[in-house]
Nucleic acid binder design. Sequence first.
DNA 1: TTATATCGTCAAGAAGATTGACTATCAGGG
DNA 2: CCCTGATAGTCAATCTTCTTGACGATATAA
Lengths: 146, 146
Amino acid sequence: MVKKVDDFQLDHVGWRLWDAASVWKEKFATEMVAMGHGWYREARSSIIPHIRAGGTRQAEIVERMGLSKQAVQQLIVDLESSGIVRRDPDPNDGRGKIVRFTEKGLAAQSDGRKAKRKVEAEVRAELGSQEFDRLMDALRKIGSGA
Amino acid sequence: MVKKVDDFQLDHVGWRLWDAASVWKEKFATEMVAMGHGWYREARSSIIPHIRAGGTRQAEIVERMGLSKQAVQQLIVDLESSGIVRRDPDPNDGRGKIVRFTEKGLAAQSDGRKAKRKVEAEVRAELGSQEFDRLMDALRKIGSGA
DNA sequence: TTATATCGTCAAGAAGATTGACTATCAGGG
DNA sequence: CCCTGATAGTCAATCTTCTTGACGATATAA
């Protein structure tokens, strides 16, 4: 199925942003699957960039992602059962847990970066370097300010 | 809750596009609610721009939206029970149904256009007209081609 | 007229996220 | 040292959005 715009009222920034973001996600997911990460799914993978090399506390991931702690937990549990991350108790806080990559997780993270670079390079080629940089500037301006 | 980027790996086109699209959606929803459309929710409202003044066949909406026909139907049923649209049998095809706006629906569509213009104007003001136009060009290039 | 395809519907369920209720732990003030 | 209140994580139930599967009715073409 193909989305259409033409004669209706869809040619505005909001839709264009969403559409472009969708294209990006699809390309990225395709790359990840091609690299053998069959477990890859949007929601799960959205956690990955929030885990530091040395591990990140669950509460910090919650804060960073802007989701409820329960939602984040469910995603982490899924990633855990897929062998992407593991959780250790926080030595400095008996309540806390630290989320760390497993070997498999580190590989996924590395492939994720590879996929990101590849898709980004495609977009840059499509637009030209200068226009790409201008796009990024504009997006940063109208984004959430992060 | 606030999303964060800083020292992680989130400053790339995909995330920026998604983030900017999120900001847009939130602003738009806020406008709609402010105009009294309490029924407004993202999924439901995504149908509205696909209904023509003279009505649109359900099957055409399905094709345009790129969702399953069942998903589209559920959204239409919801809109119907909120009094936004009604459905008449298609006089030219005993199988088909034509989705039309009610009075309330026409008002919502009109307010939707108003909200769109308002939010778009905000973004244009933030970027400057020239940069805004360049952004739109770039987004059209990297979008789904519609 | 008889296949075949299309249009819409009903039902069940997966995926992602939410809210509410609860336990364990921490940190600060008496 | 012991309350009090805030924080970290968990468990359970539920909501929204969308999917797949099965189906009846109508259209189209051989």
